[in-house]
Simulated assay, not measured.
Amino acid sequence: MSKALTKTDYHFPHQKSVYHGKVRDVYNVDDDILVMVATDRISAFDVVLPKGIPFKGQVLNQIAEKFLDATADIVPNWKIDSPDPNVTVGHMCQPYKVEMVIRGYLTGHAWREYRDGKRSICGVPLPEGMVENQKFDQPIITPTTKADEGHDEDISREEIIAQGLVDKAEYEMLEDYTRKLFERGTKMAAEKGLILVDTKYEFGKNDDKIYLIDEIHTPDSSRYFYADGYVERLGKGEPQKQLSKEFVRQWLIENGFQGKEGQQIPEMTDEFINSVSDRYIELYEKITGDNFMKSDTSKISKRIEIAVTEFLMGQV
Rank of each mutant, 00 (worst) to 15 (best):
I265V: 09
T144I: 03
G314R: 08
K7H: 12
I42L: 06
N255S: 15
M313Y: 15
G193R: 03
E282T: 08
E282F: 07
E113S: 13
P139H: 04
V47Y: 11
V98R: 00
M92V: 07
P50Y: 07
G259A: 13
R112W: 14
I102D: 10
E246A: 09
D9E: 09
K7E: 15
D25R: 01
K260W: 13
G314T: 09
I42C: 04
I195C: 01
I273M: 03
F257C: 08
K200N: 04
S298G: 08
D228F: 03
E172D: 08
E232D: 13
P143N: 06
T199V: 00
P76H: 06
G259N: 14
D31Y: 00
A44E: 02
W251Y: 10
K66C: 13
D30K: 05
K299A: 13
I140H: 13
T107N: 15
S221D: 04
L34M: 06
E305V: 07
K180A: 06
K7G: 15
I160R: 00
Y10R: 01
D40Q: 06
M130R: 03
E113W: 14
L68Q: 07
W78R: 10
Y177S: 09
P266I: 12
G57P: 03
I273N: 02
R24M: 10
K79Y: 05
D228S: 07
G150V: 10
T8K: 09
I160A: 01
I33H: 03
